[in-house]
Amino acid sequence: EGGKLGLGRPALPEEVAAWNVDVLPDGTGLPVGSGSVEDGEMLFSDNCAACHGEFAEGVDNWPELAGGEDTLADADPVKTVGSYWPYLSTTWDYVHRSMPYGNAQSLTTDDVYAIVAYILYSNYLVEDDFVLTNENFLDIEMPNADGFIVDDRAETEYPMWRTEPCMEDCKDSVEITMRATVLDVTPEEEGSTEEVTEAAVTQDTSEPEEVVEEVAVIDPALVEAGEKVFRKCAACHEIGEGARNKSGPQLNGVVGRVMGSVEDFKYSKGFVAAHDQGRTWDEVSITEYLAKPRDFMKGTKMAFAGLKKEADMAAILAYLQAASE
């Protein structure tokens, strides 16, 4: 037993409360609150669907949260909250602490209950009129709760493989049964000297005076505020040097850009039409779009509820312009 060194200071109760938010499988740590499937559907659409899909089915490589029942023994198991996760506490805890991606801990307690209720509903585990609360939380039965065993390698594997290995005549014949180059999924080697040189040259040709002038027009404090607001967008959009399309198009030069004009991005029908009409993004159209995306463009794929605050709007406009440079 080491003697105490008297280092550190006691943690204050409010400090422990701020960080100690994990929820244990028996419900310890779960705050009082409730949320309905109905509310959850809307919240999920606004906060989660961009990556996880409107029905929690997953977009691109982002995780699917629903479906996959009875697939765990198949060639390609579909592991979702419904088919795989053994404890509901894990879902609540993860949504509460780590989601939405890029804007963690922005949901209220009741929002989290509602979103979890909707995820349960999307897995056919509750009805559409269900309301999840801290009271009925432990009543939910997770389908794969009994699907796990504690690591048994010490019994099932180690005795087999703790033996004196063969050194001579270990096999009669050896045949190649599979080759990686047939699949051809290995990335090309990057980082060659040519590429480095090219990047350096590109940098050298930029004109510093012009940049300084442009940035000076925009209020730096506003840009900084806008950078924070942009975190709501960053899960789907990139902006700045080397920005690429993600689930949303890259946003370089978006102010003044023709709508639906980013190469290799698959736009919704509405934006394809807007592009053909030559409509451009200006401060007015961007403001309208960000305030209520679905009102501005019917059928837009952007699953974002909209910016509520005028200050956020001004900030994001400043940031979109500054970050495009």
């Binding site: 023994a73 592991k79 909250v81 795989y84 404890y87 894990t90 993860y94 796990f148 065993i149 390698r153």
Partner: peptide, 19 residues
Amino acid sequence: QSREETSKYTDTLADGTSR
């Protein structure tokens, strides 16, 4: 039983149970 020790970093066997 956090997300990283249940939904991830668990090893599914051929019969569908997971370590």
